[in-house]
Simulated scan of single mutants.
Amino acid sequence: MKYTFKTRAILVFFCFMIFINCKDEPAIRNITVNYENAKAVSVSFDFASTKAFSVHLKDRATPILGEYQTEGVTRIFTPVVPFSDGLTYAVVMDEKVVSIFSIKNDTVESPELVGIYPSTNELPENLLKMYFQFSQPMEELGESLEHITVFNRTLNKEEAVFLELESELWNKDHSLLTLWLDPGRIKTDLIPNRKYGLPLLEEHEYEIRIDANFRGANGRPLKNEYTKSFKVGKSDKMKPSPEDWEISVSGDKVSIEFNEPLDAILLKECFRIVNTENKEIPCFSKIEAKEQVLHLVCPQQLNKGEYKLLVDTRLEDLAGNNLNRLFDVDLSSKNNMDTSLQKEIRFKIN
């Protein structure tokens, strides 16, 4: 079966070939890295010999898994996972490196870390989770915690604060990563809590480091290394209180000021505006002041009259307390728990 390239082959970079005891063999010629949808999907070269070859990461003994094909003097290797941009590979025959090539596609942009949430620099001791927003989809190897570390400046040591999950928590396009701090260490009197204590400690200072080797789905490493410094305050033992929120209207914008930072992702999902006929007013969300202010911007200026702000009760603060219950609550308590799905806040435009 004839091998067909779906996109034009691009010769991106290759080093001078190294031969050891190969005087009787013809040279490898025309080594080419082939791209498809900006990914390096195969490598091909001309080599008249019928000797078997393998492709390795440079200085690695284990060959890369993939499919080998021969078409006349052309040899083709298609890896199971596309080659990674910025890495160097070796063609090996008889346990000898006969050629090396590097992947470098200047048309592909490196991913960037565009946000870490919560964005505030003082976090509660019982912080439940953090979000990492990237500019493009990231690799799907399930090894994020190898690239994201937390250093306790107060104790001068690295801390394992994030919960390791078998399946990482990414959004659909793999650009938003959610990392949980161990709930078992946060909930009072659970075995992990008694044995290890809280993941974060009040009055301690920390630094999160995201190294540049964290790669995007296109194989490119992060554009830079990133850090976020924060200090830890007291545990948050209170539910968010809609009664304390301040609502104001200006033109096409309804603004809600909270008395604390709230969950950045849920803020975008948990608010709707309806009129007296319960017809929803189309709006989009804009978050400011380190997740302490939400603007609902409507395409058209709101008319005078009465409106209702509907708030999904799953909205949480940074400690996982939602509008109905505390995260760290005694489940054996006989206190009646609110089970409503939404809260209503009425406001009027004069």
Results as ranks from 00 to 15, higher is better:
residue 242 P to Q: 07
residue 268 K to P: 02
residue 256 I to W: 03
residue 285 S to T: 14
residue 245 W to Q: 05
residue 291 E to F: 04
residue 254 V to E: 02
residue 290 K to F: 09
residue 255 S to C: 10
residue 245 W to G: 05
residue 247 I to T: 07
residue 272 R to F: 06
residue 298 C to L: 09
residue 285 S to P: 12
residue 262 L to S: 03
residue 285 S to D: 10
residue 294 L to P: 05
residue 250 S to W: 01
residue 275 N to G: 06
residue 286 K to W: 05
residue 265 I to V: 15
residue 245 W to P: 04
residue 280 E to M: 15
residue 266 L to C: 05
residue 299 P to T: 09
residue 245 W to H: 02
residue 282 P to F: 07
residue 254 V to C: 00
residue 293 V to A: 03
residue 294 L to E: 06
residue 252 D to K: 14
residue 288 E to L: 12
residue 285 S to W: 02
residue 267 L to F: 08
residue 248 S to H: 02
residue 263 D to F: 04
residue 242 P to T: 12
residue 248 S to V: 13
residue 265 I to N: 05
residue 298 C to D: 04
residue 296 L to H: 08
residue 287 I to V: 14
residue 243 E to L: 13
residue 250 S to H: 10
residue 243 E to T: 13
residue 290 K to P: 00
residue 244 D to T: 13
residue 295 H to W: 07
residue 295 H to M: 09
residue 279 K to S: 08
residue 280 E to K: 14
residue 255 S to P: 01
residue 253 K to N: 10
residue 262 L to V: 01
residue 255 S to A: 13
residue 276 T to C: 00
residue 284 F to S: 15
residue 290 K to T: 07
residue 268 K to W: 01
residue 292 Q to K: 15
residue 244 D to Y: 07
residue 273 I to W: 05
residue 256 I to M: 05
residue 260 E to N: 01
residue 241 S to A: 15
residue 265 I to D: 09
residue 266 L to Q: 15
residue 248 S to R: 11
residue 293 V to C: 02
residue 278 N to H: 06
residue 270 C to A: 15
residue 251 G to F: 08
residue 289 A to E: 11
residue 252 D to A: 15
residue 275 N to P: 03
residue 291 E to T: 00
residue 266 L to D: 11
residue 292 Q to L: 00
residue 276 T to R: 13
residue 263 D to H: 07
residue 272 R to V: 08
residue 283 C to P: 06
residue 277 E to Y: 10
residue 274 V to P: 02
residue 289 A to L: 12
residue 271 F to R: 08
residue 244 D to M: 10
residue 290 K to L: 08
residue 242 P to L: 10
residue 257 E to D: 15
residue 257 E to L: 11
residue 262 L to A: 04
residue 299 P to M: 11
residue 283 C to N: 12
residue 299 P to Y: 12
residue 259 N to T: 14
residue 280 E to R: 12
residue 260 E to G: 07
residue 298 C to T: 11
residue 291 E to K: 07
residue 254 V to A: 04
residue 276 T to E: 09
residue 242 P to S: 10
residue 278 N to E: 13
residue 257 E to P: 03
residue 295 H to K: 14
residue 280 E to V: 13
residue 248 S to A: 11
residue 268 K to H: 11
residue 260 E to V: 02
residue 289 A to S: 15
residue 248 S to M: 09
residue 253 K to D: 03
residue 248 S to W: 05
residue 294 L to T: 03
residue 297 V to K: 10
residue 267 L to W: 05
residue 253 K to P: 00
residue 276 T to P: 02
residue 263 D to G: 06
residue 250 S to R: 10
residue 289 A to K: 14
residue 292 Q to G: 01
residue 251 G to P: 06
residue 258 F to E: 01
residue 249 V to G: 01
residue 289 A to Y: 04
residue 261 P to V: 06
residue 267 L to R: 03
residue 292 Q to R: 15
residue 254 V to I: 13
residue 258 F to M: 05
residue 288 E to W: 04
residue 276 T to Q: 14
residue 258 F to L: 07
residue 251 G to S: 12
residue 278 N to Y: 12
residue 271 F to T: 11
residue 255 S to I: 09
residue 270 C to I: 00
residue 271 F to K: 07
residue 277 E to W: 03
residue 254 V to Y: 04
residue 295 H to V: 01
residue 290 K to D: 12
residue 276 T to A: 12
residue 262 L to Y: 02
residue 296 L to I: 11
residue 272 R to N: 13
residue 244 D to C: 06
residue 256 I to L: 11
residue 262 L to R: 00
residue 274 V to E: 05
residue 297 V to L: 01
